[in-house]
């Protein structure tokens, strides 16, 4: 047996796993009766359907006639830089305030680019921090910590 459509095969397995997980969790909610459908009814049956369709998708990817596809390489380095920068931003926001956190977010996320240069990145981070301060803090009065809260 050969997996011809690798994309669909993997996607099907993913849906199957997701569906099983969601269905298992949904079992802890009541299914209810027809005149009072419980909170578990919808998620449970949707999850079961997802698992079934996921299986169909995977199995059909094995068919000899299935369209052959390959899964492109997952670039975990790009994921790590971007997600890392965003999580760092969220973590620092409460401590450093919006202005410094934006600087960090821009610099760290830029490090993920293969065209990275310190000069350009520093300039754009300062520009963005100033823009954020002007538009969101001064202009729209959004509620966030603006400056470091070391003193309090």
């Amino acid at each position: 047996m050969e997996v011809r459509n690798k994309q669909n095969f993997a996607a099907g397995l993913f849906f199957l796993a997701f569906g099983i997980f969601a269905a298992v969790v949904a079992r802890s909610y009541s299914l209810g009766a027809s005149d009072d459908i419980g909170p578990g009814y919808f998620p449970f049956w949707l999850a079961v359907l997802l698992a079934v369709l996921g299986t169909v998708l995977s199995v059909s990817a094995l068919a000899p006639k299935a369209e052959a596809t390959e899964i492109g390489r997952l670039d975990w380095k790009a994921v790590a830089w971007i997600v890392g920068a965003v999580v760092l931003f969220a973590f620092l926001l409460q401590i450093l305030g919006i202005v410094f956190s934006v600087l960090v977010l821009v610099i760290v996320s830029s490090l993920g680019s293969h065209e990275f240069t310190w000069k350009g990145t520093l300039a754009s981070s300062l520009l963005l921090a100033a823009l954020v301060y002007g538009v969101f803090v001064m202009g729209l009065h959004l509620q966030f910590p603006t400056w470091p809260t070391l003193f309090s």
């Binding site: 926001l93 919006i98 963005l128 954020v132 509620q143 966030f144």
Partner: peptide, 26 residues
């Protein structure tokens, strides 16, 4: 693009944070 995408990230982060002033959204 190397200048554009950090800006996209910044605006997205601020946008989701401002939904209810909660970093959990990020």
């Amino acid at each position: 693009y190397r200048f554009l995408y950090p800006a996209i990230l910044v605006f997205c982060c601020i946008g989701v944070y401002s939904l209810n002033s909660n970093v959990a959204n990020i």
